[in-house]
Simulated scan of single mutants.
Amino acid sequence: MNKSQSEVVRTAMEVLDERGLEAVSLRAIAERQGVRMNTVVWHVKSKGRLLELMADAIVAEVRVDDLPARWDHRAAELLERYRHALLAHRDGAAVVGGTYAPEPATLTLAETLIAALLDGGYRDQEAVWTCWNAIHFTLGLCREEQAISSAEPDRLTEALASGAFPALTRTLPHLLRPSFDDRFAYGLRRLLGTAGESPS
């Protein structure tokens, strides 16, 4: 990424953090930088390409050094760092989850995670599929955490008041108090505890 392109991405990240993903546009970046929109287009080509670069910039905040030696601890720590990078930016999970960006930081994260899984005894296909599952689980949970509003518990309680959903009503206390930290830790334990099992 050249300097001018980096400056466009940095400005886009400022807009994202201040106003959210819906406010990110080539025009908004041009206005903030005090340049013509054609100048922004010259550096990033399109909004789709801008979002790819933004996604990789978010993932670039995930440190891949100083990880634990044991494979499962290494994978869990890497995914924890990934989660923190997503949550560090307003709508960060939506940006990353909405792109397919085989960019340097994204590839480095995948390389490091898959290498940990291979060290744990996963076969090649298992390692790739588990990497995908772990990444998408983390993205999905972070998107929920960033999107949930204080009104959600009341809406859920009202929706279940009819008694038409007995399993949900029975487990309502757990649904109303989502501990994202606990859910994330639980999910990682489930995802990383199946080395050696053949995928169906």
Rank of each mutant, 00 (worst) to 15 (best):
M1R: 15
S4M: 09
S4I: 07
Q5G: 11
Q5T: 15
M13E: 12
E14M: 13
V15P: 06
D17A: 11
E18A: 14
G20W: 08
L21W: 04
L21V: 08
L21E: 09
E22G: 11
V24A: 04
A28C: 08
R36D: 11
M37K: 14
T39A: 10
T39V: 08
V41L: 09
H43V: 01
H43N: 10
V44T: 05
V44M: 00
G48P: 01
L51A: 02
E52W: 01
A55K: 00
D56H: 04
I58S: 02
I58Y: 02
R63C: 05
D65S: 12
A69Q: 10
A75M: 04
A76Y: 02
E77V: 04
E80C: 03
E80L: 06
Y82N: 01
D91N: 06
A93T: 01
A94M: 03
T99A: 11
Y100A: 06
A101S: 13
A101G: 07
T108G: 04
L109R: 05
E111I: 00
T112H: 07
L113P: 01
D119P: 03
D119Y: 01
G120M: 06
G120L: 08
Y122F: 14
Y122L: 10
Y122H: 14
D124K: 09
D124G: 01
Q125Y: 08
E126S: 15
A127N: 04
V128C: 03
V128T: 11
T130W: 01
W132L: 14
N133C: 12
I135F: 10
H136I: 12
F137H: 10
T138M: 12
T138G: 08
L139Q: 10
C142D: 03
A147M: 07
A147F: 05
I148G: 02
S149V: 07
S149L: 07
A151I: 09
D154I: 05
L156G: 05
T157S: 14
E158S: 13
A161H: 06
G163E: 11
F165W: 14
P166T: 14
A167K: 14
L168E: 15
T169F: 02
R170N: 11
R170F: 15
R170L: 14
P173C: 13
L176T: 07
L176C: 11
R177M: 09
P178L: 03
S179N: 13
S179K: 02
S179I: 01
D182C: 01
R183I: 02
F184G: 00
F184C: 01
L191N: 06
A195N: 08
A195S: 15
E197T: 13
E197S: 12
E197F: 04
